[in-house]
């Protein structure tokens, strides 16, 4: 049996890796590496959920870990890889973002999240409660990534990374949502990615590019 203090350390380690990966995604400019980072985040999520399931004996978390692994480590990266191959945008490198500035904003967001999460985590009764701040930070960092990117695929990866953060938050605060809800969310994410896949082809067909700066015509005059 693992002692509580040791379990806590392991969970914090996973949380730290999550945050690190969130920053890495913020800084990454190549689309394929971004997908790899996303898959790695999914793997960390699976491991940490599995670990929490093991230490607390919450059996439904094993299922969550399983779904996370199937969806976020295997299925979604595979779909994204396939999409990128079919759309032939491997060379898609973005050059227009100022990464150091983005990172600084990211740090501010992390501090903010810790402040917001503090009163909440004092109430939570889970062994993972200390990581709630990091979970919220990953959500906001993914949000920041969506704002700063001008290509469609990185925006979608940001969207998915945000969902990762939310999932992490759910595990941290309450040992995960009830099974029905978690399955529903997984289904939504999957359908969402499939729809976006269809959508990419439509955008590409119309504009010959996946640069969403083409999609800025609709404005108030």
């Amino acid at each position: 049996m693992i002692t509580a203090a040791f379990a806590n350390q392991i969970i914090n380690l996973f949380a730290a890796v999550m945050l690190l990966l969130a920053f890495a995604m913020l800084a990454q400019r190549r689309v394929l590496s971004l997908i790899d980072l996303f898959a790695m985040q999914g793997l960390v999520l699976t491991l940490s959920t599995g670990f929490v399931a093991y230490t607390t004996g919450q059996t439904h978390l094993w299922f969550s870990a399983g779904i996370t692994f199937a969806l976020k480590v295997v299925l979604l990266p595979w779909i994204l890889y396939r999409l990128i191959r079919q759309l032939d945008v491997k060379w898609d490198v973005e050059g227009l973002i100022n990464i150091p500035t983005t990172m600084l904003i990211g740090i501010v967001l992390v501090i903010l999240s810790f402040n917001v999460a503090l009163p909440i985590s004092q109430i939570a009764g889970t062994i993972t409660k200390g990581t709630l701040g990091i979970a919220l930070a990953s959500v906001l960092l993914a949000f920041l990534m969506m704002i700063t990117r001008s290509k469609a695929v990185p925006q979608v990866i940001g969207f998915l990374a945000m969902e990762n953060g939310l999932f992490f938050a759910a595990t941290a605060a309450t040992y995960g949502m009830p099974m029905v809800v978690e399955l529903g969310i997984a289904l939504d994410v999957l359908v969402g990615v499939v729809i976006l896949g269809v959508f990419f082809f439509q955008i590409r067909e119309r504009f010959d590019s996946l640069d969403i700066r083409h999609l800025e015509k609709l404005k108030e005059e």
């Binding site: 976006l196 955008i203 609709l218």
Partner: peptide
């Protein structure tokens, strides 16, 4: 309708509502 404007509207709709609902 797959017009440029409708694609843009749908993209905006998806991303903004998706982020919001998150």
């Amino acid at each position: 309708y797959r017009t440029p404007a409708s694609l843009e509207a749908a993209w905006k709709y998806f991303i903004l509502c998706g982020v919001g609902i998150a």
